[in-house]
Every structure is written in C-alpha cells, then in structure tokens.
Amino acid sequence: MIEWFSFAQIAVAVLAGIVCLVAGLAGRTPADLTLGLTLLVEVLLIVQLVVSLVAPAVGNVATGSVLEFFVYLVSAVLVPPLAALWALVERTRWSTVILGIASLAVAVMLYRMNTIWFIQTA
C-alpha cells in the first residue's frame, strides 16, 4: 500500500458514497454520475490490488496479516460491480442508495486494510 494513494482512495470512496446516497434519497435513479463514481471506486480498487501485489517486491511490506489484508481487498473488489449490476438491472432510486452504501462499505474496508498494512503487527 502507498499511504497517500490509499488515503486519496478512501476520500474518493466516501465522496462517491455520499453523492450516491444523497442522489438516491432525493429520488434519482442510477445515472451516469452515480454509476461513474462507482466505476471510479472500482478502478481505484483494481489499482490498489496491483499496487499491493507489487509493493512487497520493492520493499513496501505489510506490517500486519497479509492474508487478512487480501481477504478485505478481494471482498472490496467484488462489492461495486455487484451494486452496479443491481443498479443496471433495477432502475429505481433504491439502487442509487445501494451504490452509495457499496462505496461507503468499500471506504470502511480500505480503512481496515490501511490499519493492517501500516499499523497492525503480525
């Protein structure tokens, strides 16, 4: 994990989550903005996956449990696509709220990953 990147990623996920929640509660069905933000969260997760796989090779090693870290990361990668699939099939305001919850859940998982990588000791 790269510290500034993971914090930026958490910020993006929180922002995407809040925008989707607000849009959904305001009655918007999933649209370019909300689906685009969810896509952005997913792209950043895939970048994070690549970074975390490569990082140990260049001396950036997790201080905590690597297994726990990757269970979180792989779970997180699955969340936005499932929410987006739901949003594409069922175009109601609730699907937009679900996009928001998905991004917020990703933010929490990223925070946990951050703790495992930088703070937790194995």
């Binding site: 297994l67 269970v71 779970s75 609730w94 919850i101």
Partner: peptide, 23 residues
Amino acid sequence: GAGRLLIVVYGILALAAAGRSMV
C-alpha cells in the same frame, strides 16, 4: 422498497463476518 437496503446491508455484514472468521 427500503427492504432492499436491509438485504444489502445484511449481505455486506455476512461478507465481513465470513471473511474475518475465515482469517
């Protein structure tokens, strides 16, 4: 309606609990 949210939150909690207990 809002029941979908309940299902989604349950799903996320199930994922979190399963992942953690597996580890």
